[in-house]
Design a binder for these strands. Structure first.
Length: 274
DNA sequence: ACCTAAATCAACT
DNA sequence: AGTTGATTTAGGT
């Protein structure tokens, strides 16, 4: 039996929930976040089944985005005009499919009330999850998901990030890499050569960092003093990722003095004048 | 059979 | 484009 590929479901409904499909679209995107239109496109491009009934399933998909706490809406920056906000995954939602089923999670992901409130009120501090909220199984589960996705879909990673939301200093835009297999390894490292034990990268942390970096000024200045930095719990940061992030983005991402025994990284978005 | 996540329909913004 | 509620369907045990 041939290995299933992204096209192998044909007109049949793929064994993925809308949540799974949406997560795939987000993971597949270079910046680990995308617009509704991009999510639609990803699904339709890859699953012929969804090329019809669009009114029905797209309504359901939107319902999912709003209803599920695992999806976070990132408002579009004014200097990045276009339609709709960006959607990304909540950093703590990475073990959603730990039971190996992409049809139904063991439990619905809900973020705690207080965190939700903090997010809505300040958003700045709330966007960075506290270390202890990350379930221990995160790395393994992420690896599992990536493996599943590449197995089922024969996935290809999209081209490199376009100029990120933050103003770029790029003397050299990274050359468009060849399309690579959709693995955490390839997401994390720019050179194709794996480090020995291939530790799994918490890409969710990368998302969190990027999410903060792309917060529009109104959000991180609303009512609050504008922070000069965030201390992010990038506890398990893969060395390759640590290198990759500053390469693509001009902000500082450096180890800060460990507080309370935990590793955090000081993340300083570039200051912009409004 | 039961529990509850996911899908659907739909009104409202 | 996004939010919310009500209701039905169906996955997992």
């Amino acid at each position: 039996m041939p290995r299933p590929t992204r096209e192998s479901y044909g007109e049949q409904k793929p064994p993925y929930s809308y949540i799974s499909l949406t997560a795939m679209a987000i993971w597949n995107s270079a910046e680990k976040m995308c617009t509704l239109a991009e999510i639609y496109k990803f699904i339709m491009d890859n699953f012929p089944y969804y090329r019809k009934n669009t009114q029905r399933w797209q309504n359901s998909l939107r319902h999912n985005l709003s209803f599920n706490d695992c999806f976070i809406k990132i408002p579009r920056r004014p200097d990045r005009p276009g339609k709709g906000a960006y959607w990304t995954l909540h950093p703590s939602a990475m073990n959603m499919f730990e039971n190996g089923s992409f049809l139904r999670r063991r439990k619905r992901f809900k973020i705690p009330r207080d965190e939700k409130d903090a997010m809505e009120a300040g958003l700045v501090q709330g966007g960075a999850p506290r270390q202890e909220e990350l379930p221990p199984g995160v790395p393994r589960d992420l690896g599992h998901i990536a493996h599943e996705l590449s197995h089922h879909m024969g996935y290809l990673v999209s081209p490199p990030p376009p100029p990120p939301a933050v103003a770029l200093t790029p003397a050299s835009a990274p050359a468009p890499p060849k399309r690579q297999a959709f693995t955490i390894e390839n997401l994390a490292t720019s050179d194709a050569r794996p480090d020995p034990p291939a530790p799994v990268v918490p890409t969710s942390m990368y998302s969190a960092a990027l999410s903060l970096a792309t917060l529009p000024p109104p959000l991180y200045s609303s009512g609050l003093p504008r922070p000069t930095h965030y201390d992010l719990p990038l506890a398990a940061l893969h060395p390759a990722l640590a290198k990759a992030v500053p390469a693509a983005h001009p902000f500082d991402l450096q180890p800060s003095p460990p507080t309370e025994g935990e590793h955090t990284f000081r993340f300083s978005p570039p200051m912009r004048t409004l």
